[in-house]
Every structure is written in structure tokens, then in C-alpha cells.
Amino acid sequence: MDGTIDVVFWIMSAGAIVTALLVVTVKDVFRAALALAGSFLSVGGIFFLLQAEFVAVAQILVYVGAISIIVAFAILLTRDMGQGNPTQSNRLLVVGGGVMAALFVAVAGFVAYDTNWSDRDSRLTDLDVTAALTGQYEESTNRSGDTVLIAFTGVDETSAKDGVFADTTGWLGGLLVRDYVLALQALGVLLLAAIIGSIALVREQASE
């Protein structure tokens, strides 16, 4: 089973990278939009492989089901753009590309530097892994004194199986409506303001 998952991972990764390259190289704007949707879909597949089902489905729901459609709809409404900008580049290509590459290297480097690679495996004991596999989370402190959510309460080690993870959706939902409810509400208000603002902008003005 592990070998199969590796194969699927490589297919998904290759798909994500190839379609992402197509987005910036294909001349037709609509084809680029479709490639973008394909890229989003591949990333969603990778999330599935990582057992992050909720994130995977949210990725499909939001990116494939909404953002790609808005992009495609914008192309439909601006039909003249359909044939695309013949070069997909301009004078500042090198500058922009350089800035983005530098930012990417900076972020990737920071993550690589900040992650405690050597300590990571040793900190996870067998029982922690068992807790993660069976979903018996509880708030507690780990060995270095930080508050963490992964712990266990009376985990039966035999009930854990490889590749079977707990209900992450319920856990995320709990975080969202309990711990981070203020941020959620603020986002809702922000979206409402954006909708009302856009309606106000496009509303027909009463003729003087």
C-alpha cells in the first residue's frame, strides 16, 4: 500500500507542477485558466494523500469550484481577451520574476531553518503516534513545556492502524467556532462589507 501511495504522490506532484507551468506558458487565456484548475485539483489530491481530508475538500470546493469558475467567467465576459496576450510577458518580466524567486527562496529557507529537523522524530514517542492515529487528542503539555493539542487519554495501542487517521474535521470545526470564533466572525463581516460595497459600486445610478 505504501508503494502505491508513493506512485500516486508522484503523479499528483507532477500534475501540479506541469499544469502550473502551463498556466504561465500557454498563450490562450482560457486554456491557462483550465490548467490552473488542474493544478488546484492536483494539490487537493496531495492533501488527500496527507490524510488532511477537510483541507483537500475545501481546496476543491473553494479553488476548483469557485475561484477557477470566477476566473473562467471573467474570461467569458471579456471575450476579446480570449486569444490572450501573445507573449504572456512584458519588459519587467526579469524584475518581477527575480523578486518572486527571491521571496520564494526566503520563505522556503526560513521554513527549512526554523523547523527542528533533528529533534522532530525523537519528540514523537510511540504513544504520541498512537494518539494521533486513533484520534484521542487532548490539550496538555509536551516534554519541553509547551501547550500542545496532541496527547492521549487511555489509548489502546492495538486500536491504531497504519494510515488510519482521526476525525480532523471535527477537530478543525471545534477550533474554528471556539478558539478562533472572533476571527471567523470578523471574516464574515469583512465578506459582507465586500459584497455590499460591490453592489453599491455596480448599482445603476438614478439619472439626474
Partner: peptide, 22 residues
């Protein structure tokens, strides 16, 4: 039997809009 089955159905059900646009 994934624990987001219903959400998955809604997500892929919305994807046919893209096919109609295409």
C-alpha cells in the same frame, strides 16, 4: 467512508460549472 463525504459531494458537484464554461 471518508469523514468529509458530504462536503466532497458538494465540492465535486460544483465543478460541472467549469465544464459548462469550457
Amino acid at each position: 467512508d471518508i469523514n468529509v463525504a458530504l462536503l466532497l459531494i458538494i465540492a465535486v458537484g460544483g465543478a460541472n460549472v467549469l465544464a459548462i464554461l469550457a
